[in-house]
Every structure is written in structure tokens, then in C-alpha cells.
Amino acid sequence: MTTMTLAKALNAGLRRAMEDDPKVLVMGEDVGKLGGVFRITDGLQKDFGEERVIDSPLAESGIVGTAVGLAMRGYRPVVEIQFDGFVYPAYDQIVSQVAKLHFRSGGKIPMPMVIRIPFGGGIGAVEHHSESPEAQFAHTPGLKVVACSNPVDGYWMIQQAVASDDPVVFLEPKRQYHADKAEVDEDAVPDPLHVSRVVRAGEHATLLAYGPTVKVCYAAATAAAEEGKELEVIDLRTLSPLDMAPVYDSVSRTGRAVVVHEAHVNLGLGAELAARVTERCFYSLQAPVLRVGGFDTPYPPARVEEEWLPDLDRVLDAVDRTLAY
């Protein structure tokens, strides 16, 4: 048992993944000597050497493309994209190559790559440093997309993503990196990577969240409980593929669902979740599935980001609306 922040947990998980398999490499901007701008790769270059923890130029497309070549030759590259908005220069490589090579080669070329992306807002940064691009990757067949929300999941999910032969876009809620600590049992048997999990049980409505909004929804459920409203909170964890069984099970019981993500509501993950819940739980639903998320604007300047991000009040407002149906 070790008490860790999410940042420390990811660091420890990466370290263990590198110990377990000499083919695991870490690449990215400032990941080596500096240890990453968020300290996620802190100390790894010192311990594993410059050949396994590679400081790259600011060349996201070249780095991800280079990682493709490494993966073709038997390595398991873990690429750090420094901030969410910096992934767009690599978007072509990820969507046109990483996602498609296994399919395109008739199963001959695996693509065991992890693309780590600190995502979401709340740290007083600006656009390109606070974005939630998950839907763009979840929309692409051939990519797996996961989001951790806490230190325990961070520790295990990063190891599972590295061990997977699938290319995984690994989303880390940057505002949670140093926010909370949790006990991590390094000898535990973790849940599989692609499962969603009920993190708080309730009977009146279901909140669906991932990454940074899990904490927001948990706080909303705690507040609602004081008013006698018991909200079930599901941490989706896996965004592609979605693990819908726990969601259907929950909504079948509660009859109400609210999806909460920082990403823009329009065509976000919430739209897909609402569609699937409606298709499968139609006769159980007491209200339409509601969505709470970022507004359909570019990410706002730091001074007003708290107005923009879904917070406790907006989640509770949606809960009130769904309960009022």
C-alpha cells in the first residue's frame, strides 16, 4: 500500500510497465531530463536511460509517426502529448496510420502504442491547454480510448494500456494530477481496462462521468443525498469501446440519466451515450437523457473557465430537471 497522487500513480505505473517489458519506451517533449511538465515521467530517464526515455523535439506528428515505426519493429512506445491541444498536429498520424494499420494489413501489423494526453481544464490554462478531444478519437475505429479519474485507476490503467496490443489514447485529467491522494495497493488484482464501474450507488438517477467530472459528480451526489436524492455515479473509464452493461443496468433501475463531461455537448460522448441508453432502456426511462458539458465555444480564457466548466450547480440543475419529469 502506498499513498499517491494521480501524478505519482501514473509515474509508478509507467515505471512498473518499463520494468516488466524492456520493449516499453517513453517518448515526448520534455519527458526525459525534466520529467514532463506535469512530472509524470519524473526520474524515469535517470533510471532507464536516454534510450528508453527519449526527449523529442516539438514535432508531434513526427513523434507519433516515429512511434508507429517503432511499434512495427516490436517496441511498445508510450508517447506523451504535452497538452491536449498539442495532439492536433499528430491527428493525421493517429487517425490515418495508428488506428488503421492493423486492419489495413489484414491483422499482420499490431500497433501496441499508448498516446498519453493530459486533458481537460481547470488549471487556469487557456485553449490548446485545456481541451477535451476524446470524442474525436472515440469516433475513430481502431483506437481504444480510456480516461482515468483517480490514483488507483491511474496506476493500473496505464500498465494495462501499455500491455495491450491495441493502440490506446490514454486521457489523464490534468487538474486531478496533484489534487487528491489515495491508497494504491500494488499487489491488488485490478479490474480489466475496458470496464466501467459504479463508484456510488443510488436509486433516483444515474450520473455518467469520466476523467475530471467523476469528482464533480461524486460531489453532486453527496450534495443531493442531503436532500434525500440518491444518485448513482458511474465512472465510465473506457470511452472506446464503451462498456454499456453497467450503464443499462443502472438506468433500468433509476429511469433517469445525466451525462457529464467537460467536452462540448454538441456531438460529444454524451450524444452517443444518450442514443444507446434510449435504444436499450426506452421503457425504463422516466425522462430524456440529459447532457451537461462544455459550451459550444472554443475553450475560454482562464479568467472565465470556471463559468464554462460543468460544476456542481450545473450537474444538480440537470438532476433537478430530470427528476421533475
Binding site: V64, G69, M72, Y75, S96
Partner: peptide
Amino acid sequence: IVGGGIPMAVGGALAAQL
């Protein structure tokens, strides 16, 4: 993709070097 193979070859070269 025009230029798409260039970084893969760089990755192949890096793999050989490593």
C-alpha cells in the same frame, strides 16, 4: 497519405539503432 511513410521509416531506423 503523401509523406505518411516518412516517419514510419524514421521509427524503423530508430528501432534498428536502439
